[in-house]
Each structure stands twice: as C-alpha cells, then as structure tokens.
Write a protein that binds this DNA or RNA. Sequence first.
DNA 1: AGTGTGCCCGTAAACGTTTCCAATCCGTCC
DNA 2: GGACGGATTGGAAACGTTTACGGGCACACT
Lengths: 345, 345
Amino acid sequence: MTVTIWDVARRAGVSVATVSRALNRSGPVREETRRRIEQAARELNYAPNSAARSLISRRTGMLGVLLPDLFGEFFSELIRGIDGAAQAGGYHLLVSSSHDAASEIEAALRGMRGRVDGLVVMAPMVEAGVLKPMLPRNVPVVLLSSPLADGAFDALTVDNHGGARQVVEHLLSHGHERVAILKGPERNHDAEERLRGYRTALAAAGVPWRQELEIPGDFTGESGYRGAEAVLRMDPRPTAIFAANDAMAFGALSALRDAGIAVPEEMALAGFDDVSSTRYTIPPLTTAHVAIRELGARAVGMLVDALVPGAGPRPRPRQRETLPATVVVRRSCGCTGAEGGARGP
Amino acid sequence: MTVTIWDVARRAGVSVATVSRALNRSGPVREETRRRIEQAARELNYAPNSAARSLISRRTGMLGVLLPDLFGEFFSELIRGIDGAAQAGGYHLLVSSSHDAASEIEAALRGMRGRVDGLVVMAPMVEAGVLKPMLPRNVPVVLLSSPLADGAFDALTVDNHGGARQVVEHLLSHGHERVAILKGPERNHDAEERLRGYRTALAAAGVPWRQELEIPGDFTGESGYRGAEAVLRMDPRPTAIFAANDAMAFGALSALRDAGIAVPEEMALAGFDDVSSTRYTIPPLTTAHVAIRELGARAVGMLVDALVPGAGPRPRPRQRETLPATVVVRRSCGCTGAEGGARGP
DNA sequence: AGTGTGCCCGTAAACGTTTCCAATCCGTCC
DNA sequence: GGACGGATTGGAAACGTTTACGGGCACACT
C-alpha cells in the first residue's frame, strides 16, 4: 500500500541512496538520472515517510506552540502572526493550549518532547523557578511574556510597564484624580507589570495611591463587567478606569452602559492591547497599542534564526527583546479629537 | 546526550523488549520488574523517541487541521472546540491555515502526509471535484462545510439553508417587504447555501425576488460596511438587511451608525453564526445560532471515533452530520422582547 | 600508458522503537 | 518425578530514511 523510497529506486533503476540525494538535492546526481527519479516518484505518488526521516536526521520540521488559551482576539491575532511566520520559515505548527497550571504545562511540554525543532512558550502564570526545569534544553525555546529573566532562553516581552504608565498618565492629564484599575489575574506576569505601570504613573504625578482603587480581575470580559460595577458602588466614585486588557475594558463598557453611565463624560475608560475591535466600540477605546501579530511573528522568527536550515540548533547568544506599547488615543478617555469616528468595521 | 530505551534497559538490568512492554503496558511484566524499569526511566529522564515510535507503529498521535483562516471570532471558537476534543482524545494538533486557493491546500495537505493520524479539513472555497483527489485515503478525513457530497469521506456541515431561511422568515414576519442580503464570497459553499435559504424564505412568503437586493460581500466586516452603504443608496431603500455572517453584520452596523440610521427602527438587521459578541453590540444582534465550538469538537470526535486506540483507521461507514442553525432573536431585528439588555460580556 | 582527480553512484550502517517468536522459569498436576 | 502450562523475559527483525565510505569511470595530465 505505502510506497517507499525502495519502490522509487527500483522503478528508476538506481539505488535508494541516489534517490535520496536526487530528491533532497543533497549530493551530486547526473541531470538525466535526477529527472528519471523525479518522474518515477511522481508516477508512484511517492511521499517520504517523515517519521523515518526525522528519526535519522533528528529534525521534525515542526515548531511547538504552547499558549494559555486559543480564544479571544488577542490569541487569535497572536496565532495568526505565529502561523504566518512558521509557514514562511517552512515549519509546521504543533499547538497546545488551555494551560495555566504548571502541571498542565509540564505534561504538554513532555508530549512535545522530540516532536518539535523549537518551542514558543507563553506561560505568564508560572514562576521562573518552576518553569525553567520543565523546558527542554536540546531545542531552542522562545519565552513569551514570561518572568524568566535569566539568560538561559530567548525571551520576548511587551513593554507592559511603559504602556500602562503611558495610558494612566494620559488619563491623569485629563485631570482625573481618582483612577481605578481593573487588574489582571494574580501572579500573571503581564498583569503585574501593568499594575506596576499604573502605580508608577500615579507616583510620578503625585496622585495618592489607594488600595481600594485596585480592583481584582482575570482578563475576562465578565470580570471587567463586575469590576466596573464595583467601581460604580464606590464613594466617592472614581472618574476614570484603566482596564488591564481590552477584554475587561469591553466588559466594563457594557456595565457602564447598563448602568446608564456615559463614557467618557461621566467615566473615562482605557484598556490595553489594542485588539482590533477597540475601533468599533461605542465610544472607540483608548488603549495601549501592542503589535500582537508581530509579537507572534517575531517569536517564531527568533526560533527560525536559531535553527540553521540543515542542522540542529546552533549555539548563539540568547536574545531578549521587548516590543513597545504606546498609548493610542480614541474617544473613551474623553479626548474628542483623534480617531473619533471609526470608519469601517 | 540523548537517552534511549537501551540506557533504561541496561540500568534496569533487562532487555529493551521488556522496557517497551513495561512502559507501554503492552505485555506481561512482573510487578517488581516494572517498578525497577520505571524508576530507571525516571532517573534517566527518559522520553521515548516519537519518530522511532511512529516509524514502526505507523501512528503519530497527531491530528491535522486545515482551515481557511485562524482569525476572527468564528475560527477562534472553532479551534477552541477542536483543541479541547483533541486533548480529550489524547491527540496533538497540527494546524495550518490561510488556505483558500486549491494549490495552497494541496501543498499543506502534502506537507501533512504521514505526519497525522487523521485530518479535519475546512475548505469551503474549493469544489468537490478538485478537493477530492488531494485528500489522503489512508487516514480518516472529516470535511467541514465542504460541498463534497459523495460518501467517500466523513462530513460535518451546518444547516446553512435552514438557518438562513429562518432568519429571513423572521425578518419578513415583521412586515418587511424589501430585505437585502449581504452575500458571502462567491463559490463559497456556506455562502451559497445561506443565499439559497434567503431565496427560499422569500419565495415561501411570496415576496418577489430582486437581483439588486443581493449585494456582494466576502464575510469580512469591511465588506459588510460597504454593503450597508450600498443598501442606503438604494431607492426605494430596503428596510431590513440579512448579513450572511456576523462579521459582516457588525460592519453593517458600523456603517448604519455612521450614517445616523437607527437600528432597528429605520433598518432591521440580522446576521449568521452567533459569535459571542453578538450579545454586546448596540443593539444586540439577531442571528442564526450555530454551536461553533461543538462543531469543532464534533469534527475531531468523528476522527477519534474512526481511530481505534491501538491500531490504524478502522473501516466503518462514512458519517454525515448536519448541525442545526436556529434563529436567536435579539434587538437588531426590531423585536423588543427577548434578550434585550445584555448582561455582562 | 600510467596516474591522479572529480563526478556519480551503490552498499551498508545507523537512527530508536515495537513486536513476533522462542526460551526460561516456576508451580501444579498426574 | 516428570510433563505441562502460564507468566515473564530476551533476541532479533522490521519500520523507511539519510549518509559515510568506497568503487567505478571518464578525462586530463605527465
């Protein structure tokens, strides 16, 4: 049933070694022979057995991608970037998601062992010390948004602190004195950094920090909704909300609308990530722009760089990159000017 | 560097055959021996080489997923369903996307040959005759939303015709006489079926069909925006719009808002798919509900069914399933009652 | 004519598993 | 006491490639 390299060799009247060399262009083969082999392969509809190939060559042609989730605009866009770059580099993608707990990550990682030539790991919830021993050392790994700071692995992060600071400073520049933050999950690296940016902005502006203005959340729209409800119950009521990601901002927007609170007149609002639908809410959302797609593309780019086409991982200094996050002003913060009326969907 | 089954065997003082049997529980091994082997494996941090394993066992433990895109709420939710079911079945996921052209699909399919135990293929844009010869015959394949109707492969579809018909009939029940449709891409199976449903509803209600009410689109929000603009230029102006998917409906909503047209008072609107944000637009969107996540889960479910745990594909009659699509009434169609105020995101 | 030099090509050894088959062991039964 | 039978175990073949190594061959040069 299955046609092997032997069948091709027999049909072309050569040895398997020659077939291999011809098909992979990995050695000298006379032009005429090569044509004969290629024709034989085509006629037999031959496809090399990738298991056998990677058994001996120790390369699989696949990259592993480990994400906390696949759902939502952020991950959707992230994957898109990852996928594009992987295709461009000639790699297939082995994806695995829904991993927050360290044990799940470990299991997923173990499952990928030996199956991939490189790995993109996004695990903002697990600590450096526990993550590190789980990561394979024989293939290159790129860490996305991970607290792992030592130079053992390539790492790619977003300037969460700077972005959050900018957003909050923008809010403060409108004269808001009481700015609440809807926080991300506890022990999540991105969330912690954004919170830190919030505090930095407050301190820099000389605005007093208040515990009660830091409202728990978990990056879901639902938690944003509840967070905004909590804000509305406060007295005195804050006049601005910084949601640590856009999904929570959308939830908050929903809650504010349901409560009949006008945004931005009665409550200013800003988010983080700049997912695409920030442009189409009412009002459009002021947020910190992150080049999400590029984040994904860059991650596999680093991997592809680390993998020299023919051989295994090549030793080279670890990379550490940080993508900028800059405030993009729309209407939800109370600015009337820029990007006011969204055009198109 | 890499530890093999031989190392484990030596350390445990047994043969590789016994190690294999012990670790896979694939044959009788004395309890005490098994413990010794497991301990040795643990100490050496042994992980079986999956290439070697799948070379001999002819199983890879991976499922291939071929999609036209990864982006957007629909695919995001679809993947989520696929991923969940794959994990439940103990399979890894090899994904590939951005394929509309037949040649791209063929290339992606060739790349997956031999790497996967089964395949989920969504290719609504390619014709049956073209698609069929590209599909592998040695592994089970589940077709998603594909026009391929003969019984050669398992197939899973959504009741596009019925769903569209229901939505349009609902619109007509409000007394609308001129209902425009924003069509999906040409030659897209889902789009064609939804168009057919629209026509069926019109015919059933005795409403005359008009060419100019069928407006081209491509399932993107942008095209929905332009489509709605086109509708607004018509004279006499239609009083209702059925967008062939939610993304286009969102675009249309945006256009109507920009034009100052009140929805649903001046223009009723409905979509298709019931992605999650239909609940949070203003007004909430009437649409045809599709269990997207379940669609994905069901697809890999069919695959897993076809793959008996130990061996290769097992011969069995081809499945053909159709998931229902039923209208869910919110406010954009002019009904005031049901699901009016969205609670939480 | 002999000899080096390159180009082509074939032989065979890996790669790390799984699995068939035969061998061994140990207790039981006649 | 020896045969028998089931539970364990080991040996070795197979899976389909890639690749080191060496053999032929044509050609040019001495």
